[in-house]
Nucleic acid binder design. Structure first.
Length: 549
RNA sequence: GGUCUGUUGGUGAAGUGGUUAACACGUAUGCCUCUCAAGCAUAUAUACACGGGUUCAAACCCCGUACAGACUACCA
C-alpha cells in the first residue's frame, strides 16, 4: 500500500494541494521592511498582562513599518473554550484602541482581510491538505498509542532519567506498515497524526532569535502530534506552521514559554521548505511573593488580568506606557522627547528587550498614570470618570452627572497650571478624594479633628470664623488676611517658624486654625487649597455643615 | 532527570574591555508666607551572583559553580 493510498484513506475528501493554497495566499504586496504581525489568542476568556505586552509589540511593529496586524482565533481546543471569550478579546483590543487590520468575528459575521479564514476551526480543510501532503511524503503517520501507553512510556523515561516524549523506539507506530495502519483505521481505532521526525537530538543547529541573538539548539527528534484525534484539528505547533506561513506573518511575538518549542518549529518549517518568521519572545511577567519571585499568576495576582486595569480605571494611555517601558526601557527617554507622539511611532528594538523576566511595577504604573491624568483638562478627566463610573460606580456616576459643572470645577482644583496636583492614579481613586464635596455623600461622617483641641476650642474657632470673618466674596489675599486676624485674636501663631520655636507660647498655629475649619467642613485634615474648597462648596452648603458638628 | 534562557541598587534598567557604573520609579530629609498633593533640593541604596582564567586593564571575553525561570500534553 502506498503512502498516497493511506493518505486518501485518512483524508478522502481532500483534493486540493499545498501548492493550491500557496497560490490562494500569495506573498503580501507590502513595501520593503513592512512587518506582518498577529495576535493569536486561544479563547479561554481572559487576557494576561503578558499577552497584552505581546499585542502591544505586535501593533507597534506593524504600524511602525507600514505593515499589517491581524487577529487570529486559535480555537482548536474546544474543551477549554469559554463562551464570550472572543467578544472579550475584541473588547480589550477596542478599549486600548489596538485595532487589527484583518480579523473575523463569527458572532457578528464581520470580517476583513484576504488571508482568512482567521478562525482556526474554519481552516480544517487547509490543515488536512498540509497533513495529507506530509503523509504522502512519508513525513507523518497515524499513531495508535493509547493514553495508558504514553503514560507508561513517560514513567519509564522518568525512571531511567531519559528525555520524555514519543521519539525513537517509543514512537512505535512510525514503524508499522501502511497496511496495518489502514486496517486499524478501518477498524475504527482512534489515532492521532504524528510528525515523523527526521532530527537527531545530538545534532545542533544555529538559530537566531531577535531577542537573544544567536543560539545553538539541539534538533527536534520527537514525533509530536500534529493532528488531534478528538476533533481532527491541528495542534498549536502545526497550526502555527500553516497559518503563519499562509498568512505571511513576518514576525511572531509570543511569550517566552514558547522558546523551547523552537527546535520543533524549526523542523516543521524545514520539512515544508518554508521560510521561518522572525521570533520575538517576550519576557515573563514576574511577581514578588514574599522572598520568592514567581511568574505572575491569574489566580493569585489580580493585576495579571487585563480586566484589573479597566476595573480600577487606569487610563488606557498609562497602561500602554507602562507596558512599553517594560518592553523597551529606552521607551521612557523616547517619550520624554516625543511627548505627543503615538506609542506606535516608537521604534521598538527586540534586542533591547529583557529575555528572561520582568517585574511589573504597579508603583511605576501609578506614577505614569498620575502624570498623565494631571496633564488633562478637568473636562477630559470628567469624561473619563463619567465613562468609567457608568460601569463601575453607577451611583457616583449619577451624582457627577447631576452636578456636572460643579464636578468639573472640583476636578479643576489646582489643575491646568505648571505644577498640577497629582492626586489620583486611577479613576477609582477619584471618589475617595472628592466625596466630601457632595452633600449626598456627606452622611454618617466622622471628623478627623486634631486631638490637641477640645470640642470647645473647635467651637470657638468655627463660630468666630463663620460669624465674624467669613465672606464668600473674599478674594484669596483677603481670605488669608482674615485667617491671620482670626489666629492672632485667638492666640494662634501666624508664623510657622516662630511657632515651631516656641510652641508653648501659643494655643496653636495658623495651620491649626485652617485645619479646624478644614475638618469642620470636609471632615478631612488633608484637602487641596482650603480657600478653593470654601469657594466651591459655597455659603449655603457650608453653613448647613457647620451645624452638623 | 533533560533542553534552553537568564542573573547590574527595593523596582524597571543603560552600559559589551578603560565611566565618579546613566536614567526613571520608590524611599528618607529639607525648602516652599494653611494641611495634603505637586514642585524644588539633598540623600539613600552592602548594585555588576560566586570562583577561576585571558588582558596593562573585565560588569563587559572564556571556563566552571550557584541560584532563578521556562519547556518537557492529542493545552495553547
Amino acid at each position: 500500500m502506498t503512502n498516497q493510498e493511506l493518505a486518501d484513506l485518512i483524508f478522502p475528501n481532500i483534493t486540493k494541494t499545498v501548492a493550491d493554497y500557496e497560490k490562494m495566499y500569495p506573498l503580501r504586496n507590502l513595501k520593503e521592511g513592512a512587518k506582518v504581525t498577529r495576535y493569536a489568542p486561544s479563547p479561554t476568556g481572559f487576557m494576561h498582562i503578558g499577552n497584552f505586552m505581546s499585542v502591544t509589540i505586535d501593533y507597534v511593529l506593524a504600524k511602525n513599518s507600514g505593515g499589517v496586524f491581524y487577529l487570529r482565533n486559535e480555537d482548536t481546543d474546544q474543551a477549554r473554550e469559554v463562551e464570550g471569550a472572543v467578544e472579550f478579546i475584541r473588547h480589550i483590543l477596542e478599549y486600548y484602541d489596538i485595532n487589527p487590520d484583518e480579523y473575523e468575528y463569527r458572532d457578528t459575521k464581520e470580517s476583513k482581510g484576504n488571508y482568512g479564514p482567521y478562525i482556526q476551526s474554519e481552516r480544517k480543510e487547509i490543515y488536512h491538505t498540509f497533513i495529507k501532503h506530509l503523509i504522502i511524503e512519508g513525513k507523518a503517520y497515524p499513531c495508535f498509542l493509547t493514553q495508558e501507553e504514553m503514560d507508561a512510556a513517560r514513567e519509564a523515561q522518568t525512571k531511567d532519567k531519559r528525555r520524555i516524549g514519543i521519539y525513537g523506539k517509543y514512537a512505535k507506530y512510525r514503524y508499522i506498515s501502511n497496511e496495518e495502519a489502514a486496517k486499524r483505521i478501518k477498524n475504527g481505532e482512534k489515532y492521532t497524526i504524528r510528525l515523523r521526525s527526521n532530527g537527531n537530538f545530538n545534532h545542533k543547529f544555529k538559530f537566531t532569535d531577535l531577542v537573544n541573538g544567536d543560539m545553538e539548539l539541539p534538533e527536534n527528534d520527537i514525533d509530536i502530534p500534529i493532528m488531534k484525534s478528538s476533533n481532527q484539528l491541528p495542534t498549536y505547533h502545526f497550526a502555527h506552521l500553516v497559518d503563519d506561513h499562509l498568512m505571511r506573518t513576518t514576525h511572531v511575538v509570543r511569550g517566552q514559554e514558547w522558546m523551547s518549542s523552537i527546535p520543533l518549529h524549526y523542523e516543521l518549517f524545514k520539512t515544508f521548505g518554508f521560510k521561518m518568521p522572525k521570533y520575538i519572545h517576550t519576557p515573563l511577567i514576574l511577581k514578588k511573593d514574599g522572598d520568592k519571585i514567581r511568574k505572575i499568576s491569574k489566580r493569585l495576582d489580580p493585576e495579571a488580568r487585563m480586566t484589573y486595569y479597566e476595573e480600577k480605571g487606569y487610563p488606557v494611555y498609562a497602561v500602554i506606557e507602562a507596558v512599553m517601558t517594560i518592553a523597551n526601557s529606552n521607551y521612557e527617554v523616547w517619550r520624554e522627547n516625543h511627548p505627543d507622539a503615538k506609542f506606535y511611532e516608537f521604534e521598538f528594538s527586540p534586542k533591547k528587550m529583557s529575555s528572561s523576566g520582568a517585574l511589573f511595577d504597579l508603583d511605576k504604573l501609578d506614577n505614569i498614570s498620575k502624570n498623565y491624568l494631571s496633564r488633562l483638562k478637568a473636562k477630559e478627566v470628567y469624561d473619563l470618570l463619567d465613562k468609567w463610573s457608568k460601569t463601575y460606580d453607577l451611583e457616583f456616576n449619577k451624582l457627577i452627572n447631576k452636578y456636572q459643572d460643579y464636578t468639573i470645577n472640583v476636578l479643576n482644583i489646582e489643575r491646568e497650571q505648571k505644577k498640577p496636583r497629582k492626586d489620583y492614579a486611577s479613576l477609582s481613586e477619584v471618589k475617595s478624594q472628592i466625596w466630601y464635596m457632595y452633600d449626598e455623600l456627606f452622611k454618617d461622617v466622622t471628623y478627623d479633628f486634631d486631638k490637641r483641641f477640645t470640642s470647645n476650642d473647635i467651637k470657638v474657632v468655627v463660630d468666630e470664623y463663620f460669624n465674624n470673618y467669613y465672606d464668600e466674596a473674599d478674594d484669596k489675599d483677603t481670605w488669608f488676611k482674615k485667617m491671620q486676624d482670626l489666629a492672632t485674636k485667638l492666640n494662634y501663631c501666624i508664623n510657622m517658624k516662630e511657632y515651631k520655636e516656641n510652641p508653648d507660647k501659643f494655643k496653636g498655629s495658623i495651620a491649626d486654625i485652617s485645619n479646624i475649619i478644614r475638618v469642620a467642613i470636609t471632615t478631612k485634615n488633608q484637602t487641596p487649597d482650603l480657600y478653593i474648597i470654601l469657594k466651591l462648596l459655597g455659603k449655603e452648603r457650608i453653613l448647613k455643615r457647620i451645624n452638623l458638628i
